[in-house]
Structure formats: structure tokens, C-alpha cells
Design a protein around this nucleic acid. Structure first.
Lengths: 139, 139
DNA sequence: TCTATATTTGCAACATTGTTGCATTTGAAA
DNA sequence: TTTCAAATGCAACAATGTTGCAAATATAGA
């Protein structure tokens, strides 16, 4: 899936900021913060344009926001699982700050009070990724 | 458990701001935002004092922060389950904005990549509480 | 290819949330 | 009552996100 294919599929204009953001996210294994997306060309687009573009992409369901427990925000492309079972799970490495989507690799279940309805579930696992684990515990 | 008992137990001075925040949280069924805590006396304490006090209470393990998917933050008293299994689960009603702690009422399990270590898990369930459900679907 | 138009973008200004440094006040121990 | 570390208030700042408006641009149609 290319950037242009995505934009065409969602009937969005192929503008610079959209192509840039989608291109960065496509290239990345993990979810990226605004700063991380911008890193290669920090001042290529205005901050406002960036926010508005991220908002548009999110509203169209092309990307999703991940809010970590320290209030920071990362973005990732949506999988092509239409609207899954609305369980969004991510792993956050507290050392290198990498965020991984865990689509379909988690199970969650809750006993809610009577007549409470669950619409979406957001899970963030805080921990250490393999690289950082090995760095801190050699051998 | 009273405010003074809590402060004494954690060896903290019984200061105005601490007593006020703990008192509000003790009275509340659900988690409260900074604004909601302040509501009865919005200007009783400086904003900085408020933040520093919340930070202290959190560091001591008396309260915990809940970060919702819209970036807003709420606070709640910790249960007296020493350090549980590090699964923090909350329900957030998207209509009335109420947040409920779901201690011990959830099951979660994830298949992480090899050598990834989970330290803490944060879950937010977005949905509708019983009151709001009945309001939107009378009968 | 050129033109028209809705959309996107940049800029300025502002709002909210959170932090730091420092001087003053205060809780509680002696 | 005195003393002093801890807590507080104030000013200033930083990060993150939003709104209004004018200028630039993508693309549909001539």
C-alpha cells in the first residue's frame, strides 16, 4: 500500500503534509510522536497544519492516536481489520520510548456494573522491549 | 479512613492543599480531574501548589493518575491492595465523563514478542454508564 | 492547458496544561 | 516559643493544542 493509494482510496487530496505524514508512518515499524514524524524535516510544515492533518487522518480512520500514561501521544497507521473488536492495545518501552501495536495479540475482559456498555477499550502495556532488556541485563 | 489518618500513615504534613485534595477524592465515588477537585473552591490554592501536591500524593502511592484517550487526566485514591498485579483498569463514560476504577474486575493477557517484559498495564474502557445509557434509550 | 473553486496551508494570536526558580509562609518538632 | 525543613504563592516560561483569516494549491471541468 503506497501513500498515494491510501489517499486515493479515502478520497483525500494528495497534499504535501498528508503525503509526508503517511510516508513516515508507512516506513516505521512502531508508532511515532508528532516530533518523531517531523524529525527528518522539522520545519517543512506549520505546526497547525500538522495538527489539522493528523486530525483529518484520524477522523477518516487512516491513523489512530495512542495516548500513553505520561500524557504523550503517538500515531500509527490503522490495520486493515475494518473495525476489529475495538480493542486497541499497545506496548510502550519505558527506556527507548518505542511503541508497538499489538493488534489481535491480546485478550481482555471486564466485569462492568449492570447496564454499563463498553464501546472501545484502550490498553497500554508499559515495560521493556527486548533490546532494552538485554542492554540493562547483559547476558 | 480519614484525611488525617492517611496523611499520618504516610508521614506527610497535614497541609491545607493536601487535606483539601484528599477530602474531595474521599467524598467522590469516581475519579476527578483537577478542575473537578477544585470546583467547590476554585481559587483556594495556587495552580502550581495543586500540581505539586498531586505529584507528591502520586509519588507516595496515595493516589493515581488516569490518562484518558482524549488526553485528559483524572485522579483517584489508591485501593489498599498494596501493589496488586499492576493492572490499572478504568471505565470512562463518554457522555457524563465519569471515571470508575475497576480494581480486580478485569482480566488481561497479551502475547508479547520474545523477551519483551511487561511492567504495568493501563486499561481505559470507553463507553456509557447505566444512567447515560438509560437517558439515551428511554425504556 | 487553463480556469474556477473548494480545500489546504501558513501565520498570528490565544487557550490549556504543566514546570522551574525563588522568596515567603507554615507545620510540627524540640 | 523558637527553629527549620517543607510547603506555598508568584512570576515567568515551556509544551501542546486551537481558532480565525488570508494566501496558496489540488483537482475537476471547460
Amino acid at each position: 500500500m503506497t501513500v498515494d493509494e491510501i489517499l486515493h482510496q479515502y478520497d483525500l487530496k494528495h497534499t504535501g503534509c498528508r503525503k509526508f505524514i503517511l510516508s513516515e508512518l508507512l516506513q516505521s515499524e512502531s508508532a511515532l510522536s508528532e516530533e518523531e514524524i517531523k524529525k527528518p524535516f522539522p520545519d517543512l510544515f506549520d505546526r497547525v497544519t500538522f495538527y489539522r492533518t493528523l486530525k483529518t487522518l484520524e477522523e477518516r480512520g487512516i491513523i489512530h492516536r495512542i495516548v500513553l500514561n505520561d500524557n504523550s501521544v503517538k500515531y500509527a497507521l490503522n490495520g486493515h481489520h475494518p473495525d476489529q473488536n475495538r480493542l486497541h492495545a499497545h506496548f510502550h518501552c519505558g527506556k527507548c520510548d518505542e511503541v508497538l501495536c499489538l493488534q489481535g495479540k491480546t485478550r481482555f475482559d471486564a466485569e462492568l456494573p449492570v447496564d454499563f456498555v463498553s464501546q472501545e477499550v484502550f490498553v497500554v502495556i508499559e515495560g521493556l522491549c527486548a533490546d532494552c532488556l538485554h542492554q540493562s541485563q547483559p547476558d
